[in-house]
């Protein structure tokens, strides 16, 4: 460690080394670790009026976490089914959106990396990127209009004779899943594209030459090779979907709550920061645990993702 530091100094000189170290420390501690520690600290405290903060009542407690499971202390013996259901549904929906994105993005990434050339490839990348210049909220509202009762899609389906009357895409969460799926498409495509692109074409041809049908080429050669990219993409899409707020707020049906919306309510309308922090921490910890378990299951190391 000490030799590494002295090497680092020699390589970069004093001024640059100090700048690099300080900026990294600032980034990691001030911007990432410290706020989360505050949140952590909040989540173990009672929601007290300002006068009582620092007073005798200001002690650590697990009640905010207990609330997530059992509801308020009065409703002894029963579970907080509302929040738990929303929590589970959010995670399942996030998994669903992630798999949906993977199914769409893997072929696109593979095509981009190995079949598209020159102008066509550039056009394709551009048409993937440009829509993301549009503001997230605007995009969500556009989806809402598109999927609305008199939106393009309903109009088309009625015109084509597939539907007699408009289908409520919003109430049935189709708009929400479509919006979420679309929102993070690039985060799925590019990591996969990056890994697949470095795959030697001859590997694909060799498998084909040895008699392999196309699906086995992907199953045995391309997908194992792209696994780090796939994991990286899935991780990001899953985390961001589970933590999305704008899209569920705008596109979600009236009856379906996203877990982030509950967190938002605790912070904002409920004015209960400790409770909100506890919920946020639960979401964060669960997502990280889930991702780590999945990585274990699919035998991907953290270092590979960073490649």
């Amino acid at each position: 460690m000490s030799t590494w530091i002295s090497n680092f100094y020699h390589r970069n000189g004093t001024a640059l080394s100090i700048f690099l170290l300080l900026s990294v420390l600032f980034w990691v501690f001030i911007l990432i670790v410290l706020p989360q520690l505050f949140m952590m600290d909040f989540s173990f405290r009672h929601n007290l009026p300002p006068a009582d903060i620092g007073g005798a009542k200001d002690v650590y407690t697990l009640e905010n976490y207990q609330y997530m499971i059992y509801g308020s202390a009065q409703s002894e013996g029963s579970y907080n089914t509302v929040d738990l259901t929303v929590f589970a549904r959010t995670l399942i929906a996030a998994i669903f959106v992630t798999l949906f994105d993977l199914a769409i993005c893997y072929p696109i990434a593979f095509y981009l990396a190995h079949s598209a050339y020159g102008g066509a490839a550039r056009l394709m990348v551009l048409s993937l990127i440009v829509p993301f210049w549009v503001n997230e909220i605007l995009r969500a509202f556009a989806f809402r209009i598109m999927f609305g009762a008199t939106g393009v899609i309903n109009n088309f389906l009625i015109w084509a004779g597939i539907l007699d009357q408009p289908y409520d895409f919003i109430r049935n969460d189709v708009a929400l899943y479509a919006g979420l799926g679309y929102a993070f498409i690039l985060l799925m495509i590019f990591p996969i594209y990056n890994t697949v692109e470095s795959l030697d074409r001859n590997q694909i041809e060799a498998a084909r030459d040895l008699g392999s049908p196309w699906w086995r080429i992907h199953w045995r050669v391309v997908i194992p090779y792209a696994k780090p990219g796939i994991t990286s993409g899935c991780t990001m899409v899953f985390m961001l979907t589970a933590g999305a707020l704008a899209a569920p707020q705008i596109l979600g049906g009236p009856s379906s709550l996203w877990f982030t919306q509950i967190i938002y309510q605790w912070f904002n309308t409920g004015n209960n920061w400790p409770q909100g922090s506890a919920y946020a921490i639960i979401l964060l910890a669960t997502c990280i645990a889930f991702v780590l378990i999945m990585m274990k299951v699919f035998k991907v190391k953290l270092g590979e993702i960073a490649r």
């Binding site: 030697d200 001859n202 590997q203 041809e205 060799a206 498998a207 030459d209 045995r220 050669v221």
Partner: peptide
Amino acid sequence: LIFQNLALF
């Protein structure tokens, strides 16, 4: 076919 770069998996 045996490829120039072998293309082993």
